[in-house]
């Protein structure tokens, strides 16, 4: 894994972002952070991350339009998304494996992130 692998972390909680950054850095990846999905959509376009890890609370809209928009932006660049939380709207979950229910443990999350990045590399 090279340092050029970028992981976009979307989480409204600063402490969660810190923990996820530490975790991603230890995997040899470069973290990019955002508190909200709206900002994350822009970062997906500009920074072209290899993976997006997004907490559902990063979307403040009532009907998850922020998450849907982020997923569309991710789909345009073939970027996998790992969603943290409960998906209230089934249309947002393309694959059940993309969702990690809260409260999650970090070790399984690390495996999920590694698997998503490995799939991405294999598909490239």
């Amino acid at each position: 894994m090279t340092t050029a692998t970028r992981v976009l972390i979307v989480d409204p909680s600063q402490e969660s972002r810190e923990v996820l950054c530490a975790l991603v850095e230890r995997m040899g990846c470069q973290p990019i952070t955002s508190a909200r999905t709206a900002e994350a959509v822009e970062l997906t376009r500009s920074s072209r991350p290899h993976l997006i890890v997004c907490d559902e609370d990063g979307d403040l809209s009532r009907d998850s339009t922020g998450l849907a928009e982020l997923q569309r932006a991710a789909a345009r660049t073939d970027t996998p998304v790992v969603l943290l939380g409960t998906v209230k709207f089934p249309r947002l979950a393309q694959h059940p494996g993309e969702v990690v229910a809260k409260p999650y443990h970090y070790a399984p999350l690390v495996h999920r992130i590694e698997a998503a990045l490995a799939n991405r590399r294999a598909a490239a």
Partner: peptide, 17 residues
């Protein structure tokens, strides 16, 4: 409470690391 628990787990994970 779930978010608080997540925070506790995050902090604990950092301590473990």
């Amino acid at each position: 409470i779930k978010n608080i628990l997540q925070g506790v787990r995050g902090g604990s994970y950092l301590i473990e690391l």
